Amino acid sequence: MARTVRSLRRTLLAPELAEVSFARRGFPPLPADSPAARLQDVPRAVVCGFEWAIEARGIEEITQRLDLLDPEQRGFGYEGATMALTVLDAMGRGHRTRDLLEGPGRPHILLAYIGIGFAMARLPRVLWGRVLPDLTGQPLHPVMSWLAVDGYGFDLAYFHTRRWVDEQRVPASHPWQGAPDYFPRAVDQGIGRALWFIHGARPERVDAAIRAFAGHRQADLWSGAGLACVFAGGCGADTFADLRRLAGRHAPELAQGAVFAARARELAGYVPQHTAVATRALTGLSVEAAVALADDSAPPGTGPGPVPAYEHWRRAIRAHFRPEVAARR
């Protein structure tokens, strides 16, 4: 009976592999031999992680399956697995997500938060209070839990592109971490990340898509695009350089997203070549220097207030890339 219920949840809540392909989503076509074509491996790894976790008998079985993924894609598998366990926990008040993230999923915690956001996109808002596990003691919790809202925004843009990208709809707010006014900004960061995939790692199309949004939203969109391209790749050094040029006055936001992506890759224990190339192109820093900047800029606490510690962290990183600051270095 339990397995039947899980199979039903999988059918209702997870897209099939074919549904996440760029062609099925209606995104611009990509040549099969293009580096950007590999971006489709990302949502496929997420779906695999979800399906494996929703059917697994325990954390060990989930981990054994995720270990079959290439190291470059494994974090995305943990996104999907976290999504599945979040759904199970929210619907049944379990602690599977906490067990995963306090154990083998700990190095992938930043992507796991995004997986929680994928679950939020499929759960009624009344259950959102149950989705974030108690990870007290982990250094990035709960500051980086805003990546769950980022994941929610990515999901909206990827699966409902006309509404959230073409029409630039504004999501309803929610008191995440006691900062409801910041919620739409974190959603925009996820939408910006999705634009890198929707437009197949083509900077000029990403730029045009961002320019269609209201001016006050564009900085967060650029930040999301920076995180996506550094973590997922899809092009070469010249294309990354084009993206930085097109970002213009939002280059510090682009660089901030890049720094977060470099931090996430280093934390997970595997830094692909494209991450090193993109980090250098967007920030002028090595991965090691970007990680040091992220750590040195981290806020001292998570105190209450309308501006969350997560945003204070982002501001501190962006400040490093402001022209007046860079000129003094």
Rank of each mutant, 00 (worst) to 15 (best):
F159P: 00
P252H: 08
P299T: 11
W196D: 04
F154S: 02
P299Y: 09
R57E: 15
T302K: 00
R74W: 09
L8H: 09
P43C: 11
Q64V: 01
S21F: 07
W313I: 02
L243M: 12
L111Y: 11
P180V: 06
R263A: 13
F321I: 06
E288T: 15
H95G: 02
V165Y: 08
L101N: 01
D134F: 07
Q256N: 08
L88H: 06
V325K: 09
R106Y: 03
A241E: 12
F240A: 14
P107M: 07
P124E: 08
E253F: 10
A319Q: 14
R318S: 13
F213M: 07
G305K: 03
R44F: 13
F50H: 13
S7E: 14
D238E: 14
T63E: 15
D181C: 00
P28V: 11
I54T: 04
L30I: 14
A316R: 15
S223Y: 05
T279S: 07
F50L: 10
P323R: 14
D181T: 09
A327H: 06
L254D: 03
A264E: 09
L66D: 04
A298F: 15
Y310L: 06
R329G: 07
G151K: 02
L147C: 01
P29I: 14
W52P: 00
A326V: 15
G301S: 14
R125E: 09
G137L: 06
Q138R: 10
L285A: 07
V170L: 10
D67Y: 12
F76N: 13
D70Y: 03
A268C: 10
L17E: 12
A281V: 02
A247I: 00
R162P: 00
Q40D: 15
T275R: 07
R315E: 11
P306L: 11
R211N: 04
L12R: 12
R265T: 02
G226R: 05
L285C: 08
L39V: 01
A251L: 01
V307Q: 08
R3V: 13
G103Q: 03
D242S: 15
V325Q: 12
S7D: 14
P107L: 06
D150Y: 04
D67V: 11
A84P: 03
R3G: 01
V259F: 03
P29R: 13
Q40N: 14
V126S: 14
R74F: 09
G305D: 03
R244V: 01
A157V: 01
D134P: 01
R122H: 10
F159K: 03
A276N: 04
